[in-house]
Design a protein around this nucleic acid. Sequence first.
DNA 1: CCCAGGGTTGGGAGCGCTCCCGACTTGGTG
DNA 2: CACCAAGTCGGGAGCGCTCCCAACCCTGGG
Lengths: 340, 340
Amino acid sequence: MGRRRPGTPTLEEVAARARVGRGTVSRVINNAAGVKESTRRTVQRAIEELGYVPNLAARSLAGRRADAVALVMTEPDWRQFAEPFFSEIVSSLGDALTDTGIQLLLTLVRSDAERQRFLEYARGGRVDGVLLMSVHAGDPLPDMLAEARMPTVLLGRRSGDEYVSYVDADNIGGARSAVSHLLQRGRRVIATITGPLDLYAAQCRLRGYQEALASAGLEGERTRVAESDFTAESGRRAMAELIERHPDIDGVVAASDTTAAGALEALRAAGRRVPEDVAVIGFDDFPLAQRTEPRLTTVRQPIEEIGRAMVRLLLEEMEEGAVAWRHVILRTELVVRDST
Amino acid sequence: MGRRRPGTPTLEEVAARARVGRGTVSRVINNAAGVKESTRRTVQRAIEELGYVPNLAARSLAGRRADAVALVMTEPDWRQFAEPFFSEIVSSLGDALTDTGIQLLLTLVRSDAERQRFLEYARGGRVDGVLLMSVHAGDPLPDMLAEARMPTVLLGRRSGDEYVSYVDADNIGGARSAVSHLLQRGRRVIATITGPLDLYAAQCRLRGYQEALASAGLEGERTRVAESDFTAESGRRAMAELIERHPDIDGVVAASDTTAAGALEALRAAGRRVPEDVAVIGFDDFPLAQRTEPRLTTVRQPIEEIGRAMVRLLLEEMEEGAVAWRHVILRTELVVRDST
DNA sequence: CCCAGGGTTGGGAGCGCTCCCGACTTGGTG
DNA sequence: CACCAAGTCGGGAGCGCTCCCAACCCTGGG
């Protein structure tokens, strides 16, 4: 296992070259106050001349921190990763971390072995905190991290998750507003295409749909609900199924823009006009929503804010050492375009 | 910056509890030989009772290795990440690393600042090697890593890349075989939809297309070439454009399955039957290729082997300290389905 | 000219582990 | 029963950094 790399200059060597003490060099590289400007410059020159780079293992060991956080994807079906939601979130997290000096590391956890390995990595101190996305109902990872007292923030809660911090969008409210909008537009036979129902977010959106119908005095029929897995393909299938069961459908609330895009195709194939015959609403407001034909009315999730909030909560937990749990629910917003 | 976590037991404490020396405990946790079975069990019990987890920073510092490698995505347009190619590769790399005890970390490099930060991370010794995917022509990262003597393996070479290790598929050969196949099927007006041409892989596929046409004595017309960015949407657009320019097209070689899927839609929209009027060939052989209508004939890239080869090369470089460059070109394979 | 007090600086004491050498146990041999 | 090699073990010497306290340097007021 000879994995060592060629000798890099050490802090001590920089100190010798600049004719100062170790402490001074340390202060300079950490931008700490209390160093005379002239000294700082001397040290900086020595650093450049030697091409010095701090050894992060030593820094971690002495400083008891890693300056890195992990974003874990536990998606058992890792292909979901290809959905735009992931890349949008990852991007926003990256942005939110930009000037904290913290490195964002993505890791896959696709099996028990990988979960175990990651846990050792985290407990071993290679990261200071963990962001978890797309956590399914039975996943033990959050509890394991909690037990290890590792600061953790979930994206999207699971039902009953109180003893862990999370950031989530107001899925129920979003779905309600989608249905209300359709009702206002005079639609009366409204169906929904849900996401995978082992995801709490998908359950919430379904609940919002049902509640809105109920409070409008309309019967929420079970048969007007079809499940998808958030992909366009499954959206198409679900829509086809719904039309067949209920030819009189005049409105659909989809669980994501991707799903809605699939639904649009199915409607076109069935000869239904959108929005004239059937109005369609998506969820997420991804760039995709503006490129469909017609452009999609959709419930906007504030992805940018979600990322920022996750990072903020995580930093807070890291600061205080996970003594409290924080929950943030972000408001959604209906974006009306041409499909309703 | 109080980022420290609560006190974890140390190796020394385990040793004390098991009434052995530090060295013995170290041997046990590293599964080294030369420990009596009974001693090993005693130590193991102590480890469990204390819930001991090795401090990886200390291990790195003393052992001069990180037991981690990074997979860097330098895609300036990070949304490409959502393409299936990425998740397939990531999956195969994960598999290839499973029993090496090495943690795979994905990192995004979307800007100069992020590139700099990653470089410090890598040079600081947090990873033992770097895998680079989707490297565009002008990207300075490979050279920077080489200068730091960091073991590095590229996925897909860039033109003229000799002084860096890489793994690539035989893109030229793959494209040639696609064209040959169409010629055999009696097609004579063959177009191509390329990938983004600043990617060497896309250039190679284009070259293969041109060479195959030339050696069949057919004129390779420039106007039968349309560029895409590997997305379905751009494939659709490119195809529409091609049909307009050349209504007599009877064969198309697309630069990826996703692009081909887009092309299929455009053909359908234009009332062309596949394969009767126009034969279509994809590239990659993703699961998608079997779900299109009709199922796609495609040039298979051996993703699994690519991942394994990348890991193998990287491990070799890590072992010897980047003293040589290795190049592996993997054969592609034509998979004939219903679209030709 | 002396001294207080703030601004700088040096370097000891770890952080928790691996490496490795020397020492101690065995059990078999002569 | 002495002796030796192989099998086990203990613990010193770092790895390169941060933290922190003591020591030093000035400056200005008394």
